[in-house]
Design a protein around this nucleic acid. Structure first.
Lengths: 160, 160
DNA sequence: ATTTATGCAAACGTTTTGCATGTGT
DNA sequence: ACACATGCAAAACGTTTGCATAAAT
């Protein structure tokens, strides 16, 4: 689940992609990019990104972060994912889909490989003509930890 | 798609379920329930429910609607579904899962029968131990209409 | 010179809260 | 009488916007 840990294609600063749209790679933008790159497995909300930015560049305004996240998403460099409950998260755009499993109990976000969906998109397309998004899917449910905790109350010690 | 139009299990006013928790079926609650029951295929946001309520009972405050939607969800009578983009919708709780397909292009919400998922939940559980929610799943993508419109620009006439 | 980006502050829209009043049990 | 529910107004929340300034082209 950490196969893409070390820098490759997408980790290079995204100057090119930005400049295509007449955009500039400002220090603030670079910082946001860097923050997302540094935590590939965390799903950061806009607010959390803003907080991270603020730690390192206190003078940067939250609105700048919001604006830049929008820009990066618009240019396809960053992916905005809705995890439900009005929680939108941001992460670097990947080549291939990885899907999100949001635990309804503890809020944790697991990942699944695209494989598990097998031919579901095809079946959906066949039955209703809907083309499931090229990107990410979010499922809700109960993660292993919470399921275990519910099954064996004693295991609660590691939870809240 | 209107099989459950006339009163049976779920369409009956939910007095019993409410009273179990020491709750009361107030006129406001009944109205909300009625509104959701009247539009089984629409996915109403809290705000839209509030608006519908206001049409019929103008003196009812929005906060009452918000509070009551919470209560109904809490008691399992109403289902809150997150359709992404901070759009949460409400509908009467059903027996069996039906899933939502949100068109990223036009925002329309399609439904798919649970069948299309076949053994996906099992596969997910096997691979990461995550138990996909007993209820509803939301997928994002492009609906048939929008896909057709994109493929054959001439068909745009029925769209925006 | 022109465009793009920033900081600031103020506005926004939705949802939540505190509190006094009302209603049902 | 008591617990539960309501209306109202105010606050809260995360996000967005207008505008003057600053930086890059």
């Amino acid at each position: 689940m950490t196969e893409h840990a070390r820098g490759h294609t997408h980790s290079a600063a995204p100057e090119a992609a930005l400049r295509e749209g007449g955009r500039r790679l400002t220090p603030q933008r670079a910082m946001i990019w860097e923050i997302l790159r540094a935590e590939p497995d965390t799903h950061l909300s806009a607010e959390e990104v803003a907080a991270r930015v603020h730690e390192r560049m206190p003078q940067v305004n939250a609105s700048t972060v919001y604006r830049n996240l929008d820009v990066l998403v618009e240019d396809g460099l960053v992916l905005r994912t809705d995890l439900g409950e009005s929680r939108a998260f941001f992460e670097l755009a990947h080549e291939h889909a990885h899907h999100h499993l949001v635990c309804e109990s503890c809020g944790a976000v697991d990942h699944v490989h695209d494989d598990v969906f097998a031919d579901v998109p095809a079946r959906i397309h066949d039955s209703v003509g809907f083309r499931v998004g090229g990107r990410e899917v979010t499922l809700h449910g109960i993660c292993r930890q919470c399921a275990d905790a519910a099954r064996d109350p004693r295991a609660n010690e590691r939870d809240s």
